[in-house]
């Protein structure tokens, strides 16, 4: 199990020590041209999460490669670069440039709700990018698509190496005094606690519908949330919004996860992957009991 940040939720160059608590750093989405993003106000809090309408602010691929990438390489943390755009050609252009550099994987942002144009269908983008790079490709999907299972299968068929689940979903917040939208742009992407059941369902579905490794994310703030995503079928977990309130969230979640999984009888965290897909409650209890007994036999009744 590796812990990542959700794209857009950390600037490794502004907070390198936070980036170093992660197993992988995922960059903010890079587009062909530089973007300032949307006019402020572009964040809002809700009772159950937050909204962002940042709008893919980024220096553009040329400046990213020239200025950011060399400094990111110095951090010593494996790097995934999020790739975005508004047409297939955009994704291809960015991926082609990034293919030349020391990057562990590319995460295709196919699901950002904060920009006016919508990328063409997922399968088409994945297939086109597949042609220009041999690097591992993760397709980041939104749970808000009409048919997530079909979208996931299309990404797999087109050559994706994994899926990142989930991106934000569209939401709105109103100012308490004026009743006008808080965000200048109106709606934005909802992240945080409200996404947890949504992320679980998406991971659960894609675990059954594809054979791809999954990065699960959506409101993860504790080890228990991470454990549930693993149980639903994620191999890795990403933390986003929780990092805003608590820059130490990743380290804390990692140790909480180890304790939670050990308490349920898993000898190691990775053994929990897919546990939600056991045939039924009795089977799961039995599996846990067997594992717990084995752990005792081998004197492994504590995590690590």
């Amino acid at each position: 199990m590796r812990l990542l940040n959700a794209s857009g939720c950390l600037d490794a160059l502004a907070a390198p020590e936070v980036a170093r608590t992660l197993d992988v750093f995922v960059t903010k989405t890079v587009t062909p041209l530089s973007r300032e993003g949307n006019a402020p106000v572009r964040i809002a809090e809700t009772e159950v999460g937050m909204l962002n309408a940042i709008g893919l602010a980024n220096p553009g691929v040329e400046a990213f490669v020239a200025d950011h990438l060399p400094r990111l390489a110095e951090l010593g943390v494996p790097l995934w670069v999020s790739v975005g755009g508004f047409a297939v050609e955009d994704y291809v252009a960015v991926a082609e440039e990034l293919d030349r550099h020391e990057i562990e994987a590319l995460e295709l942002n196919l699901s950002c709700p904060n920009v006016d144009e919508v990328p063409e269908n997922v399968g088409e983008v994945v297939a086109a990018v597949r042609e220009v790079t041999a690097k591992p490709l993760y397709a980041k999907l939104s749970a808000a698509v009409a048919d997530l299972a079909a979208t996931a299968r299309a990404a797999e068929a087109a050559g994706a190496d994994g899926l990142s689940l989930v991106n934000t979903v569209r939401g709105l917040a109103l100012d308490e005094r004026t009743l006008l939208p808080v965000l200048a742009r109106g709606a934005g992407g909802l992240s945080g606690p409200a996404l947890r059941p949504v992320a679980l369902a998406a991971v659960y579905t894609c675990f059954r519908e594809t054979r791809l490794p999954l990065v699960g994310m959506g409101g993860v703030a504790t080890g228990r949330h991470a454990l549930e995503l693993l149980a639903a079928g994620a191999t890795d977990v990403a933390v986003g919004t929780a990092l805003f309130a608590d820059p130490g969230a990743a380290a804390r979640i990692r140790s909480e996860l180890e304790a939670e999984s050990a308490a349920l009888g898993f000898v190691n965290v990775d053994n929990a992957v897919g546990a939600a897909h056991a045939d039924g409650p009795a089977t799961l209890d039995q599996r846990s009991r067997v594992l717990a007994e084995k752990a005792l036999h081998f004197g492994l009744n504590k995590a690590g």
């Binding site: 950390l10 993003g37 402020p40 572009r42 964040i43 809002a44």
Partner: peptide
Amino acid sequence: APMACGYGACYGCVV
């Protein structure tokens, strides 16, 4: 400015 993180992570507080 409205802020979510205060340490450069969220890109929300731009002016």
